[in-house]
Design a protein around this nucleic acid. Structure first.
Length: 933
RNA sequence: GCGCAUGUGGUGGAAUUGGUAGACACGUCAGACUUAGGAUCUGAUGCCGCAAGGUGUGGGGGUUCGACUCCCUCCAUGCGCACCA
């Protein structure tokens, strides 16, 4: 019998489906284990070989844990709202719901061919009203909550209102800039009260800057704007303030930081999140002055944020962000024109330009001065684009001797620089040290800067000049999009007040539209639906939620996916608990991962779940890159590639093509043949400088790995490989490729090896003529030893996600069993079980061929029997002065003296030590022996 | 610029705590079986050398009886962040 993988795989995939083998119950009797893949967006392009890598890893792990007796939840679903479908709709007129459905179908069929153990009964799709109903529900919950810094958790706003009625803002720790008494609160109008509450709600509406494109009549995402113009059409884009929804994630910043200590993410990932949150400790300090404007003298105060209050005596000027509200109020008449021109210039520049020309120094003096709070000094106030309005207070105190940007600015505009750190400042460049001793610094003189920080803040606070303050780089997350294909907000506006829908009105279904064009005034397509927008109660919110809304809580829904009374029952969520292993790419490092962590903490605050971190362990699979051949160009000609020389890269063409041999050599003849086919990306428009040493003309081409994409011509479709080699081979090959977390180049050359392994396995059980040739003979010690060594190694490797070494351990096991000519059921049955997570189809087939009933999926993982692994002697490597000279078999029981006498008796060793007596004999039991002479 | 990660044969990679570097596989070479093989099997394969032997984990230095592994330093590649006060 032959190994007919196509038949076998089809057969068992149907069997698994029919018998609901992968259906999971919330069974409190069994130990739960939750393995999750990151939520895929069902793109139209389908899968390439890089996508399933993580899915295969998580599938192997899930199946392994199941054999180990756990109740394993391993679900799959789709993050099916999103921009690409809408973009496609805009171009082709096809409704996103329809294209999304088709894409999901393709995606699922591709996944099914690889033999995953997903419980499809638990599938969720974020665009399904039964799902987004609960996304809307959580949004309402966020809307009606505030973050109480005293109890350090989210609470209903009713409590906040009660507090306001009782004592105003007196007892509120984080007042969000509000300050009023109970009486004042009661006297406010409803609109005033609601506006105040908006400053506290965890989901709130406010004005935020967006990229507005007048020509397209729409708002664009950052990556749709290139060099200040729209990616589509190249129309100008400008900053515009629009009403937006936000999530107050900054209130959770400290808990998001603290939570990182309790999860198993890679250090790199944690670091990325910490950087994103960007916590810094410092102080807000007020600098006051009197502006002389055309309207006369006006006192004003600039609030700056600084992490280095110790340098306050080194302040030589102040800088405001150009967008700062004070700019207009303090500018002197003399400087008015210059300031206007500068503001005009800044407005014309996009964020990207500002980033691209980061080193360009621009700015303008306002004509105003502030008084230094601790000394008699007038400090000039400037504006410059290097100060960002969104960070801190949008204003800084500039200390040029300690800060590089301040230094460059001062040099550029000839502002005198005060030195407060003596020799530590050279005058050539700023020195940001914290270890210098302060000079010219009043009450801080003689102190080490590091220690002076606290003293300075104390003094500032005592003098009523400012306060200690923690700042975050992270902003509140923008939560609305002027788009169609997303969750509608359950909000109705009336008289500028946002009224939430009642829970009972959910889901607020996304209405059908015929056109996807944006509405008026930058509103989303929904605003065109007059009937839908206008209700007796008011006007509906017309933006929709962003992609991360649905994906922030989906892992909870899988625990109880069909619940129509609540988003998931607490019993179900707490039974499964945290996701034990979460597998996905690093591209979600700061977006999805932070948002879902925040939502989890929020849901935890309300007591629905007993854990506040969603993912216990995170595995980031590396990217699989695709290789291409490149022509290299030097001057006007394509030339032969040589390592190390400088070339320009030219024209990519398909890797692995037979025209190029394994050394990268391409002959003229082969290339001419090749041109007749279609595989070349674009024909080179330059002359090729063929080499010729008598025989055939040739050149060498350069081989390079890049990120896979269709346009780069380096994509392999898993369907093709599954067709050619089978799903089991494909699965094992992807695992065999290398460590899961590393990125690695894709090359199908090696897949043959894994395919041979499976064919060889098959032949261990099956003879072409005789069929099954497995015997019931009892196993020998040698066979048992080989088996148990493998069970141990493979179990350990799988546990630590070292799948590539596990696959090689299978190969070693099979090679050893072949050498022993072992065809015994006693050995082969456990082999099938331990292999089944990696190659589920072939093992299922052979398991049944051996006469077992039921699926191998339900089998029990064999126990390692240590008694087969003990050995009595070892072949020790013996070195002289650290150089390996020979190997000697010695009993493991041997003492130091015995070893020494055995080694000294050895002919090879005698030769190397030339009769000298070793100074020292190092004998490490079960490891090695080293003689020092 | 800052942060993180990674550098091992022709290739993917192994060496889990400092203890036989190159497991396993691809490729290549030689051979067997064969009408044929792109099937299968056997053997060889880091580099230099006929050999004895030497040498070898990005470069240099250090700790150690012993270093791919630890420390210092430099280089290269990849990823992330980037006027963050």
């Amino acid at each position: 019998m032959e190994y007919k993988f196509r038949e076998i795989e089809k057969k068992w995939q149907a069997y698994w489906k029919e018998h609901h083998v992968y259906q999971v119950k919330n069974d409190p009797e069994k130990k739960p284990f939750y393995v999750l893949d990151m939520f895929p967006y069902p793109s139209g392009a389908g899968l390439h070989v890089g996508h399933p890598l993580g899915y295969i890893a998580s599938d192997v792990f899930s199946r392994y844990k199941r054999l180990k007796g756990y109740n394993v939840l391993h679900p799959m679903g789709f993050d099916s709202f999103g921009l690409p479908a809408e973009q496609y709709a805009l171009e082709t007129g096809q409704h996103p719901a329809k294209t999304t459905e088709q894409n999901i179908k393709t995606f699922k069929s591709q996944l099914e061919k690889i033999g995953f153990s997903f419980d499809w009964d638990r599938e969720v799709q974020t665009s399904d009203p039964n799902y987004y109903r609960w996304t809307q529900w959580i949004f309402l919950k966020l809307f009606s909550s505030w973050y109480n810094k005293t109890t350090n958790k989210a609470e209903p706003v009713e409590g906040l209102i009660a507090e306001f009625e009782q004592s105003g803002t007196a007892n509120i720790q984080d007042k969000k800039g509000c300050n009023f008494t109970a009486e004042e609160w009661k006297a406010f109008s409803e609109k005033e009260q609601q506006d105040i509450l908006m400053n506290f709600r965890l989901a709130y509406s406010s004005f935020g800057e967006v990229n507005w494109c007048e020509a397209l009549g729409t708002v664009l995402a950052n990556d749709e704007v290139i060099n200040g113009v729209s990616e589509r059409g190249g129309f100008p884009v400008e900053k515009r303030k629009m009403r937006q929804w936000f999530l107050r994630i900054t209130d959770y910043a400290d808990r998001l930081l603290e939570g990182l200590e309790r999860v198993e993410y890679s250090e790199a990932m944690k670091e990325m999140q910490r950087n994103w949150i960007g916590r810094s400790e410092g102080a807000e300090v007020d600098f006051s002055g009197v502006a002389e404007t055309k309207d006369g003298k006006k006192p004003f105060t600039i609030k700056v944020y600084t992490t280095r209050p110790d340098t306050i005596f080194g302040v030589d000027f102040m800088v405001l962000a150009p967008e700062h509200d004070l700019v207009k109020e303090i500018t002197s008449s003399a400087q008015e024109q210059a300031i206007d021109e500068y503001l005009q210039y800044v407005k014309s520049r996009s964020d990207r330009e500002r980033m691209a020309e980061a080193r360009q120094i621009t700015g303008c003096f306002t004509g105003a001065y502030v008084d230094h709070p601790f000394m008699d000094k007038k400090v000039p106030v400037w504006i410059s684009e290097y100060v960002l309005s969104g960070y801190g207070t949008g204003a800084i105190m500039a200390v040029p001797c300690g800060d590089e940007r301040d230094f460059n600015f001062a040099k550029h505009f000839n502002i005198p620089i005060t030195n407060i750190i003596g020799d530590a400042y050279t005058g050539e460049e700023a020195n940001p040290t914290k270890d210098a001793i302060l000079e010219n610094s009043g009450f801080l003189n003689g102190m080490v800067m590091r220690d002076a920080i606290g003293t300075a803040i104390d003094r500032i606070e005592k003098g009523g000049l400012g306060t200690r303050k923690v700042n975050y780089k992270m902003h509140d997350a923008g939560f609305s999009r002027q788009r169609y294909w997303g969750e509608p907000f359950p909000i109705i506006w009336k008289d500028e007040i946002a009224y939430p829908l009642s829970e009972n009105d959910l889901p607020l279904e996304l209405p059908h539209v015929e056109k996807y064009a944006p509405g008026k005034n930058g509103e989303g397509p929904l605003s065109n639906l007059e009937d839908w927008v206008n209700t007796p109660l008011g006007r509906r919110e017309t933006s929709t939620m962003p992609g991360y809304a649905g994906s922030s809580w989906y892992f909870l829904r899988y625990t109880d996916p069909h619940n129509n009374k609540e988003f998931a029952s607490s019993d179900a969520m707490n039974y499964w608990g945290q996701v034990d292993v979460y597998v996905g790419g690093t591209e979600h490092a700061v977006g999805h991962l932070l948002y879902s962590r925040m939502w989890t903490k929020f849901i935890y605050d309300y007591g629905y779940i007993s854990f506040d971190e969603p993912y216990k362990k995170l595995i980031n699979q590396g990217m699989i890159t695709g290789k291409s051949y490149f022509f290299t160009k030097s001057g006007d000609k394509i030339v032969s590639y040589k390592e190390g020389a400088e070339y320009e890269m030219m024209v990519r063409f398909k890797y692995g093509h037979k025209a190029v041999d394994s050394t990268g050599k391409l002959t003229k003849k082969a290339f001419e043949e090749f041109l007749k086919e279609d595989s070349i990306h674009e024909a080179p428009q330059f002359e090729i400088d063929w080499m010729n040493d008598g025989g055939e003309e040739y050149i060498y081409v350069k081989e390079e790995a890049e990120k896979m994409s269709k346009s780069k011509f380096n994509v392999d479709n898993p369907d093709d490989l599954v067709y050619k080699y089978g799903a089991d081979t494909f699965r094992m090959y992807e695992m065999f490729l290398g460590p899961i977390e590393q990125s690695k180049p894709w090359d199908t050359k090696g897949i043959e090896g894994v395919n041979r392994f499976l064919k060889k396995l098959w032949r261990l059980f099956m003879d072409e003529e005789k069929g099954l040739i497995v015997t019931d003979e009892p196993a020998t010690d040698a066979e048992l030893r080989v088996l148990h060594k493998a069970i141990k190694k493979i179990g350990e490797d799988t546990e630590r996600f070292s799948f590539n070494t596990a696959v090689s351990a299978f190969m070693i096991l099979l090679n050893e069993l072949s050498d022993l000519k072992c065809r015994k059921k006693e050995i082969l049955t456990p082999l099938l079980i331990i292999l089944s997570p990696y190659a589920p189809h072939i093992t299922e087939e052979l398991y049944h061929a051996l006469g077992y009933e039921g699926s191998v999926v339900t089998a029990q993982y064999p126990q390692v029997k240590e008694q087969y692994l003990v050995e009595s002697e070892k072949e020790y490597p013996v070195s002289v002065n650290g150089k390996l000279r020979t190997k000697i078999f010695i009993s493991l029981e041997a003492t130091q003296e015995e070893v020494e006498s055995i080694v000294m008796d050895n002919e090879v060793i005698k030769k190397w030590i030339e009769g000298k007596k070793p100074k020292k004999v190092i004998y490490v039991k079960n490891k090695m022996i080293n003689l020092v002479i």
